[in-house]
Amino acid sequence: MHQTVETPTVEKGKAASSRDGETGRKPGLFWYLILGIYFGIVLTKSEAISWFRIQEMFRFQGIHMYGMIAGALAVAALSVAIIKKRRARTIYGEEIYIPPKEMGKGFRYGVGGIIFGLGWALLGACPGPIFALIGNGVLVMFVALASAVVGTWVYGYLRPRLPH
């Protein structure tokens, strides 16, 4: 079985884990909440959470989603390049390490990607927008979220038998 990038880092240091929060300075959860609120507002106002916009994208009938993804990618790529080049540290002085994704046979990325894409077009929302839509009062998205959790669980259950 292939262990991959998404294995949480916690697994390598289980023994020393329980008091970890007291050993080094870490950002409070509050700041992640603020960043999430920011992301939720931008996702909503950009209309990236709209089923209609996702349809327009997959039908290649508008630039909106492509321009947005390209703009996000440009800023993110430039930031990551600078962070790596300068060996920047977090605001608490810790090293920033971005683990490379394991290629393996690459099967999981192609097939998993296609399965995800099918769901993305049907639901008109990827995981971030599912949460943002719930905030927007589209409460039936709780059902989509529950179904996505079940889908994740089924993947976890079948994982040892699936080709990666």
Binding site: G112, F116, G119, L122, P127, V140, G151, W153, Y155
Partner: peptide, 23 residues
């Protein structure tokens, strides 16, 4: 039902199989 429950399931299964989603 197909779009919400089916789409949601595929998003969950596919994103974990692929090791990530759009973000």
């Amino acid at each position: 039902f197909v779009l919400i429950v089916g789409g949601g399931f595929l998003v969950g299964f596919g994103s974990r199989y692929a090791g990530g989603c759009t973000s």
